[in-house]
Simulated assay, not measured.
Amino acid sequence: MSALVLDGVQTRIGRYSVLHDVSFTVPEGGVFVLLGRNGAGKTTTLRSIMGLWQPEAGSVKFGATELRGMHTSAIARLGIAFVPEDMGIFRGLTVAENMVLATESGRFDQKRLDWIYDLFPALKKFWHSAAGGLSGGQKQMLAVARAIIEPRKLILIDEPTKGLAPAIVDAMAEAFREISERTTILLVEQNFEFARSLGRDMAVIEDGRIVHRGSMDAFAEDRELQTRLLSLSV
């Protein structure tokens, strides 16, 4: 089963054509990783899916629903969450207030909240603290926790390990593995080892076009392909 299908997506930002022909399928369940060099079009792809930037051509199918042309709020109500690279937290609000804003009813399901506490214990410790005072890793935990406070069918996550210490990256990987057992994750990530440890399927984008699709295991074994597409040597 497919959670998301992009077919020939083209997105223009102002005068610039950023996505030229983006096509890939995200299977239901697990983690799908979108890789690429800086400026390749990864973030634009996620924002196009969420309707933050509207594609001018192509199709974005979430199940049987065409997302292209829909407002971001309507897309979110279908069960899709987005964790942007800048995390988008409200620094002047407490952790609790940030979390409640992400709920539909303004109330927490205690069982789900306890699950989030198990994933990210720091959030329970700083529940009544201002989000702006959290460390970078704790802010990222809060951003991800907001995305999962309600049941989601798909979560788009943009560069979650950027600037984080190795110990926090390892903790984030463990949390993502558990989250992916409940929902599908489309992950954009520059940290190849982190992506490799999580991804089942993957695609590489270059200059606004998908240039490779396949299994993460096969890609991880092909050093020449990694070097050619990502300038990696691992």
Rank of each mutant, 00 (worst) to 15 (best):
T103M: 06
G88A: 07
V211A: 02
I80T: 01
I205A: 12
L198Y: 00
W127R: 01
L134F: 00
G30K: 05
P121C: 13
R146N: 04
L198F: 04
A76N: 14
E28P: 04
A130S: 11
F194W: 11
L142R: 00
H212N: 12
R68W: 11
E181A: 15
Q140P: 05
V211C: 01
Q138E: 15
F90H: 09
R182F: 00
A143W: 00
G214Q: 07
L101S: 06
Q54C: 11
G30S: 06
D118M: 10
A122S: 13
Y117I: 09
E97K: 07
I13R: 13
I80L: 10
T72R: 01
R152P: 00
D7I: 09
I155W: 11
G163R: 06
R177M: 08
I13A: 03
S48Q: 05
T45L: 07
T184P: 07
T65E: 14
L232W: 13
T103P: 06
R223E: 15
E224Y: 02
Q190I: 03
F82L: 09
G199R: 09
K139W: 00
R107T: 15
L134D: 02
L123T: 13
A165V: 02
G41Y: 04
I168S: 03
M172R: 01
M172T: 02
E97W: 05
F126V: 10
S135G: 05
M50I: 05
A81Q: 04
Q138H: 08
E174D: 14
P160Y: 03
F176P: 04
G41K: 03
T43W: 05
Q140C: 07
I116K: 04
R182T: 07
A195R: 03
D217I: 09
A96R: 14
Q54H: 11
L19N: 02
G63K: 06
R182N: 09
A218M: 07
I49P: 03
R107A: 14
N98S: 07
S17M: 13
A131F: 09
Q110H: 13
L19T: 01
A173I: 01
K125A: 04
Q10L: 12
E178G: 03
V169W: 06
S2C: 00
F108E: 12
V204T: 10
E189R: 05
V211F: 05
H128D: 15
E56G: 10
T94C: 11
H71F: 09
I210L: 08
G79H: 10
S135Y: 12
G63I: 08
N98I: 04
L156Q: 03
M141W: 13
R146E: 03
I80Y: 10
L229S: 08
L232A: 14
R77G: 07
A74E: 15
R47D: 01
L6Y: 01
K139T: 00
G36P: 11
L232I: 15
G39Y: 08
R146S: 02
E66C: 10
S233A: 13
E66L: 06
V95C: 06
L134C: 05
L113C: 08
Q10R: 15
T25G: 00
M99Q: 04
P84T: 08
E104M: 07
H20P: 00
V9E: 00
R228I: 01
D114F: 11
E150L: 06
A195Y: 01
L4I: 13
I75K: 06
G214D: 08
I148L: 10
A102N: 11
R200E: 14
A165T: 03
Q54V: 11
